[in-house]
Simulated scan of single mutants.
Amino acid sequence: MADTFTLDPAHTAVLSMDCQAGIVSIYTREGKDAFLARAASVLNHARAAGMTIIHIQVGFRSGLPEVSSRNALFNAIKSSEQHQKLFLEPHGTIPDVIAPQDDDIVITKHRISAFAGTDLAMILRANDIDTLVLLGIATSGVVLSTLIEASDADYRLAVIGDCCADLDSALHDCLLQRFFPARGSVLSSEGFIAASLKTDKQS
Protein backbone atom coordinates (compact mmCIF):
# COMPACT_ATOMS: atom_id res chain seq x y z
CA MET A 1 0.00 0.00 0.00
CA ALA A 2 2.96 2.32 0.58
CA ASP A 3 3.74 2.48 -3.15
CA THR A 4 0.20 3.52 -4.05
CA PHE A 5 -0.46 5.92 -1.17
CA THR A 6 -1.39 9.37 -2.45
CA LEU A 7 -1.90 12.61 -0.57
CA ASP A 8 -4.30 15.48 -1.03
CA PRO A 9 -2.71 18.14 1.22
CA ALA A 10 -5.92 20.12 1.64
CA HIS A 11 -7.60 17.09 3.19
CA THR A 12 -4.63 15.58 5.06
CA ALA A 13 -3.55 16.05 8.68
CA VAL A 14 -0.28 14.84 10.18
CA LEU A 15 -0.67 13.90 13.85
CA SER A 16 2.54 14.07 15.92
CA MET A 17 1.52 12.28 19.10
CA ASP A 18 3.01 12.24 22.60
CA CYS A 19 6.42 13.38 21.34
CA GLN A 20 7.26 15.15 24.59
CA ALA A 21 10.84 15.42 25.81
CA GLY A 22 10.64 12.91 28.64
CA ILE A 23 8.69 10.35 26.63
CA VAL A 24 11.04 10.63 23.65
CA SER A 25 14.09 10.15 25.88
CA ILE A 26 12.66 7.04 27.55
CA TYR A 27 11.41 5.35 24.38
CA THR A 28 14.18 6.17 21.91
CA ARG A 29 17.22 6.20 24.22
CA GLU A 30 20.43 6.37 22.17
CA GLY A 31 18.45 6.97 18.98
CA LYS A 32 16.73 10.14 20.22
CA ASP A 33 18.47 12.61 17.90
CA ALA A 34 17.89 10.47 14.82
CA PHE A 35 14.23 9.95 15.78
CA LEU A 36 13.66 13.68 16.25
CA ALA A 37 15.44 14.47 12.98
CA ARG A 38 13.15 12.08 11.06
CA ALA A 39 10.04 13.46 12.75
CA ALA A 40 11.13 17.04 12.07
CA SER A 41 11.71 16.23 8.42
CA VAL A 42 8.21 14.75 8.11
CA LEU A 43 6.58 17.74 9.79
CA ASN A 44 8.56 20.28 7.75
CA HIS A 45 7.71 18.62 4.45
CA ALA A 46 4.07 18.29 5.45
CA ARG A 47 3.91 22.02 6.25
CA ALA A 48 5.58 22.90 2.97
CA ALA A 49 3.01 20.79 1.12
CA GLY A 50 0.14 22.57 2.88
CA MET A 51 -1.02 19.76 5.16
CA THR A 52 -2.57 20.41 8.58
CA ILE A 53 -0.19 19.71 11.47
CA ILE A 54 -1.68 18.61 14.79
CA HIS A 55 0.40 17.98 17.90
CA ILE A 56 -1.15 15.69 20.50
CA GLN A 57 0.30 15.95 24.00
CA VAL A 58 -0.49 14.38 27.37
CA GLY A 59 -1.27 16.79 30.19
CA PHE A 60 -3.27 17.11 33.40
CA ARG A 61 -4.57 19.78 35.74
CA SER A 62 -3.11 20.05 39.21
CA GLY A 63 -4.25 17.05 41.21
CA LEU A 64 -5.15 15.11 38.04
CA PRO A 65 -8.95 15.44 38.35
CA GLU A 66 -9.25 13.91 34.87
CA VAL A 67 -8.02 10.53 36.15
CA SER A 68 -10.37 7.90 37.55
CA SER A 69 -9.24 5.43 40.19
CA ARG A 70 -10.80 2.74 37.95
CA ASN A 71 -8.27 3.47 35.20
CA ALA A 72 -5.34 1.23 36.12
CA LEU A 73 -2.80 2.85 33.80
CA PHE A 74 -3.50 6.50 34.52
CA ASN A 75 -4.22 5.97 38.21
CA ALA A 76 -0.64 4.72 38.49
CA ILE A 77 0.44 8.16 37.26
CA LYS A 78 -1.92 9.90 39.67
CA SER A 79 -0.48 8.01 42.61
CA SER A 80 3.15 8.73 41.71
CA GLU A 81 4.67 12.21 41.87
CA GLN A 82 7.67 10.86 39.97
CA HIS A 83 5.47 9.73 37.07
CA GLN A 84 3.64 13.06 37.05
CA LYS A 85 6.91 14.90 36.47
CA LEU A 86 7.02 13.30 33.04
CA PHE A 87 4.15 15.56 31.96
CA LEU A 88 5.42 18.78 33.56
CA GLU A 89 8.09 21.14 32.29
CA PRO A 90 10.74 20.51 31.14
CA HIS A 91 9.95 16.82 30.54
CA GLY A 92 6.42 17.44 29.27
CA THR A 93 7.39 19.98 26.60
CA ILE A 94 7.69 19.15 22.92
CA PRO A 95 11.37 19.33 21.83
CA ASP A 96 12.32 22.47 19.91
CA VAL A 97 13.18 20.64 16.70
CA ILE A 98 9.59 19.37 16.35
CA ALA A 99 7.84 22.08 18.38
CA PRO A 100 4.54 23.54 17.16
CA GLN A 101 4.82 26.42 14.72
CA ASP A 102 2.43 29.32 14.15
CA ASP A 103 -0.28 27.54 12.17
CA ASP A 104 0.01 24.18 13.93
CA ILE A 105 -2.77 22.93 16.20
CA VAL A 106 -2.03 21.61 19.71
CA ILE A 107 -4.42 19.29 21.54
CA THR A 108 -3.97 18.08 25.12
CA LYS A 109 -5.35 14.66 25.96
CA HIS A 110 -5.84 12.74 29.21
CA ARG A 111 -6.16 9.20 27.86
CA ILE A 112 -4.31 6.96 25.38
CA SER A 113 -6.22 7.73 22.17
CA ALA A 114 -5.90 11.18 20.64
CA PHE A 115 -9.70 11.15 20.22
CA ALA A 116 -10.74 10.23 23.78
CA GLY A 117 -12.14 13.30 25.55
CA THR A 118 -10.63 15.79 23.07
CA ASP A 119 -11.95 18.01 20.30
CA LEU A 120 -9.81 16.29 17.65
CA ALA A 121 -12.79 14.89 15.74
CA MET A 122 -14.44 18.32 15.61
CA ILE A 123 -11.24 19.95 14.33
CA LEU A 124 -10.85 17.32 11.63
CA ARG A 125 -14.47 17.80 10.49
CA ALA A 126 -14.14 21.58 10.53
CA ASN A 127 -11.07 21.39 8.30
CA ASP A 128 -12.55 18.77 5.94
CA ILE A 129 -9.80 16.25 6.75
CA ASP A 130 -10.29 12.71 5.43
CA THR A 131 -6.69 11.42 5.62
CA LEU A 132 -4.55 11.05 8.74
CA VAL A 133 -0.80 10.47 8.84
CA LEU A 134 0.24 9.19 12.27
CA LEU A 135 3.56 9.26 14.09
CA GLY A 136 4.40 9.13 17.76
CA ILE A 137 5.13 7.24 20.94
CA ALA A 138 4.25 4.60 21.81
CA THR A 139 3.44 2.40 18.85
CA SER A 140 1.33 0.13 21.08
CA GLY A 141 -0.20 3.13 22.88
CA VAL A 142 -1.35 6.33 21.23
CA VAL A 143 -0.57 5.20 17.68
CA LEU A 144 -2.52 1.93 17.98
CA SER A 145 -5.44 3.46 19.90
CA THR A 146 -5.79 6.44 17.59
CA LEU A 147 -5.47 4.33 14.45
CA ILE A 148 -8.23 1.95 15.54
CA GLU A 149 -10.63 4.78 16.33
CA ALA A 150 -9.76 6.62 13.11
CA SER A 151 -10.19 3.45 11.07
CA ASP A 152 -13.66 2.92 12.53
CA ALA A 153 -14.46 6.53 11.58
CA ASP A 154 -13.48 5.80 7.94
CA TYR A 155 -10.36 7.98 7.68
CA ARG A 156 -7.69 7.10 5.14
CA LEU A 157 -4.65 6.23 7.23
CA ALA A 158 -0.88 6.10 7.03
CA VAL A 159 1.66 5.44 9.78
CA ILE A 160 5.26 6.67 9.58
CA GLY A 161 6.96 3.55 10.89
CA ASP A 162 10.40 4.96 11.65
CA CYS A 163 8.79 7.88 13.50
CA CYS A 164 7.15 5.53 16.01
CA ALA A 165 8.81 3.86 18.98
CA ASP A 166 7.95 1.32 21.64
CA LEU A 167 9.78 -0.32 24.55
CA ASP A 168 8.54 -3.71 23.28
CA SER A 169 10.39 -4.09 19.98
CA ALA A 170 8.60 -7.32 19.05
CA LEU A 171 5.18 -5.73 19.54
CA HIS A 172 6.32 -2.62 17.64
CA ASP A 173 7.39 -4.78 14.68
CA CYS A 174 4.21 -6.86 14.78
CA LEU A 175 2.00 -3.77 14.67
CA LEU A 176 3.94 -2.17 11.81
CA GLN A 177 4.27 -5.34 9.77
CA ARG A 178 0.97 -7.13 10.42
CA PHE A 179 -1.70 -5.07 12.19
CA PHE A 180 -1.41 -1.57 10.74
CA PRO A 181 -1.13 -2.58 7.04
CA ALA A 182 -4.63 -4.11 7.21
CA ARG A 183 -6.01 -0.68 8.10
CA GLY A 184 -3.82 1.72 6.16
CA SER A 185 -0.39 2.31 4.69
CA VAL A 186 2.87 2.01 6.58
CA LEU A 187 5.49 4.39 5.22
CA SER A 188 9.04 5.32 6.12
CA SER A 189 9.81 8.99 6.71
CA GLU A 190 11.59 9.02 3.35
CA GLY A 191 8.60 7.39 1.67
CA PHE A 192 6.26 10.00 3.12
CA ILE A 193 8.55 12.83 1.99
CA ALA A 194 8.71 11.34 -1.51
CA ALA A 195 4.91 11.19 -1.59
CA SER A 196 4.64 14.81 -0.45
CA LEU A 197 7.19 15.95 -3.04
CA LYS A 198 5.27 14.06 -5.73
CA THR A 199 2.16 15.91 -4.60
CA ASP A 200 3.97 19.25 -4.93
CA LYS A 201 4.95 18.48 -8.53
CA GLN A 202 1.40 17.48 -9.46
CA SER A 203 -0.21 20.58 -7.95
Rank of each mutant, 00 (worst) to 15 (best):
T4M: 05
T4F: 07
F5L: 10
L7F: 11
P9V: 11
A10G: 13
A10H: 09
A13R: 04
S16I: 14
D18T: 09
D18F: 06
D18N: 12
D18L: 04
Q20C: 09
A21T: 15
A21L: 13
G22E: 11
S25W: 00
I26S: 12
T28M: 08
G31H: 14
G31Q: 15
D33Q: 12
A34E: 13
L36W: 07
L36S: 08
A37L: 07
R38P: 05
A39P: 03
A40V: 01
L43N: 10
L43A: 11
L43R: 11
A46E: 05
A46Y: 08
A48P: 00
T52I: 06
T52P: 00
I54Q: 08
I56L: 15
Q57K: 15
V58F: 01
F60E: 07
R61P: 01
S62A: 15
S62V: 09
L64D: 05
E66V: 09
E66R: 11
V67A: 09
V67D: 12
S68H: 05
N71T: 04
L73T: 13
N75P: 00
A76M: 10
A76G: 14
I77P: 01
S79G: 15
E81C: 06
L86Y: 08
L86V: 12
L88H: 09
E89V: 06
H91C: 03
I94H: 09
P95R: 05
I98T: 03
A99N: 06
A99P: 02
Q101K: 13
Q101M: 09
Q101T: 13
Q101F: 02
D103Y: 03
T108E: 13
K109W: 07
H110E: 08
R111Y: 02
R111C: 01
G117A: 05
T118P: 10
L120K: 08
A121N: 14
A121G: 06
A121M: 12
M122R: 15
I123S: 04
I123A: 10
R125Q: 11
R125V: 06
R125Y: 00
A126S: 14
N127I: 00
D128S: 12
V133M: 07
L135H: 03
A138K: 04
A138E: 06
T139Y: 05
G141M: 05
V142D: 02
L144I: 00
T146Q: 03
I148W: 02
E149M: 10
A150M: 06
A150T: 03
A153S: 12
A153C: 08
R156E: 13
L157C: 01
L157I: 07
A158Y: 03
I160E: 03
I160Q: 01
G161C: 05
G161S: 10
C163M: 05
C164Y: 07
C164P: 13
A165E: 10
A165L: 06
D166L: 09
L167G: 12
S169N: 10
S169P: 01
A170N: 12
L171S: 04
L176T: 13
R178K: 15
F179L: 13
F180R: 04
G184W: 02
S185D: 13
V186I: 10
V186K: 06
S188D: 12
S189E: 09
S189H: 14
E190V: 09
A194M: 09
A195F: 00
K198L: 12
T199W: 02
D200P: 00
K201G: 04
S203Y: 07
